[in-house]
Amino acid sequence: MTRYLLSRVGQAALVLWAAFTAGYILLQLLPGDSVLIKFQNPELGLSPEQIAEIRAYYSGGNPPLVDYLHTLLGFARGSFGYSIDTGTPVVERLAEALPETAKLASAGFLLAVLIALVIAFAAGYSRTSWIRGALLSMPSLFVSVPVFWLGIVLIQVFSFRLGLVPVIGGSPAQQLILPVLTLAVPISAPIAQVLARSIDQVYTQPFVPVVAAKGASRWWILWRHVARNAVLPTLTMAGLTIGELIAGSVVTETVFGRNGIGRLTEQAVNAQDTPVMLAIVVLAATVFVLVNLVIDLLFPVLDPRLEVAA
């Protein structure tokens, strides 16, 4: 078991390194750079030679490989360098934005799971075929709704028409309601779909009538046996939606004007603020890798058959 754990952690570290390197190379290949964007304004009156000097100052004038190793070492030690746009340490900018996004993303994810559970369980429990059909078509509807459009519609309906949620000046909790909903709806779709399908699949297993023959009620069968068995493929899917969660929060934060990682990403991209962008790439990769590592380690706990293989 320890060997398995170590190898999995090693793999995770490898993935992170690969994400860092790919991010680094791609950002270096981008045409133009942040120095140009920031200092080319004619009002500043800087000559191309002076801009080149500033650039040399930021990069330390090192050859690319040395610069790469230098940055990698910095990241390994937790120092992400300085934002070119604002001149503040990248860590500070991340620390400012992270709590907002963490709140939004975790609440959004929880709500997505809840929506998925309700849809899949209702469909699994229902014996009326049109209700089942309606429930099972909801995920495809959800996934095809664009996040930005949903956000605007929700603001229109709940804030302006119904006046239920204040647009400006609500409590932090109130301000969270609509963005969380916007984020949760499309993410719930793949989870609901996979869960509903695996519930259907588990129902065809021969052990289900055996449980029924013990005198178990429909709910008992669904909750204690079918759901337990259906959760595994769903967990894999849930882990994969983490990527979508990060992408979704960029749009959601922009639509709702929230200061989070999403907004920071948008600003960094506009300013071609390479150190910030690289830090965000690595942060997103870390979250993704960690969540999926936890899920992988949960598998043998949830399905005893996998313990032998581990």
Partner: peptide, 27 residues
């Protein structure tokens, strides 16, 4: 079917066909 729940297991027991898949694998 709901009323049958009080009969199944109590007055009628079932021994199924396929022992390989007739037990819940995660319990």
């Amino acid at each position: 079917s709901r009323r049958m729940e009080s009969v199944r297991g109590v007055r009628i027991g079932l021994v199924p066909q396929d022992p390989a898949n007739s037990l819940d694998p995660v319990k």
